Simulated assay, not measured.
Amino acid sequence: MTPEDPLRLVVIVASTRKGRFGPTVARWFASQAAQRGDLTVDVIDLAEAQLPEALSDQRNAAVTAVADKLARADVFTVVTPEYNHSFPAPLKTAIDWHFKEWHAKAVGFVSYGGISGGLRAVEQLRPIFAEVHAVTVRDSVSFHGVWTQFEPGGQPKHPDRANGAATAMLSQLVWWGHALREAKARRPYEP
């Protein structure tokens, strides 16, 4: 792999609730990322992944399928709502089921919710990803009052703001993704 090879971005849709808004936000974000020549995009929707809630010593087919996608990724973006000042439990399950798949990879966040726009969820996720040896980028994308921020077709009502935030965060993600890829090529990451 050379630095010019596109990075593999996995977008993780964290919400699994019925009637969730996450897929709308994730589709918009994935389309923004797909427009870049330096990224290829894959999506893991945790509502479809069917990860077991209880951790055990044995991985089933669902855990293995998600692990394979995470392992191939260079960078991640987590699309998460804020539930009760935190993030959805299925996201914590996905993080906990996997460990080495996160090592020395960059993570960005797209959050949404009410008045806080999901930012409290993001702040709780940062130390969790540090614990699994991932690097989180500073900038994020946040939608405050998300239900009023999107057109019926799934595009933001204020595209310049949203697209600008996505571009800034993706640029940081790409920089870190290449830096970490190059570092791991010189010396394997061993925590």
Rank of each mutant, 00 (worst) to 15 (best):
M1E: 09
A62Q: 15
G117S: 07
G22Y: 04
D45T: 07
Y83T: 14
K105C: 01
V146S: 12
R8P: 02
F21L: 11
A61S: 14
H158F: 04
S111M: 03
H144I: 14
P23A: 12
F109V: 04
L70T: 00
A30D: 04
L55S: 11
G164T: 13
G154D: 11
R161H: 13
G145H: 15
L39E: 03
V107N: 00
H178A: 05
T2K: 15
A104I: 00
A67S: 15
A33L: 07
A165Q: 15
F109P: 00
R138I: 14
V110P: 02
T77R: 02
V174R: 01
E82N: 10
G19Q: 11
A106P: 03
F99K: 14
G145I: 11
L7Y: 12
Q172M: 10
D45G: 05
D42L: 06
D96L: 01
P52T: 15
A179P: 01
Q50P: 01
S116P: 03
E48Q: 14
A61V: 14
E53M: 07
Y83R: 12
K157M: 05
D57F: 05
E151T: 15
N163F: 02
H178M: 04
D57P: 01
A134S: 15
D45E: 05
D45P: 01
R20M: 10
E131S: 08
A47P: 02
D42M: 05
A165K: 11
D38W: 04
S15D: 12
P88Y: 01
A121P: 05
A30L: 07
S111E: 08
A49F: 04
D42H: 12
T148K: 08
A54I: 14
L180F: 03
E53W: 08
W102T: 00
R36M: 08
W97L: 00
K105V: 00
V75F: 03
R27W: 02
S171C: 04
A134Q: 03
E101D: 07
A179R: 09
A71C: 05
I12C: 04
I128C: 00
G108V: 08
A168M: 07
V141A: 11
G22S: 15
S116G: 07
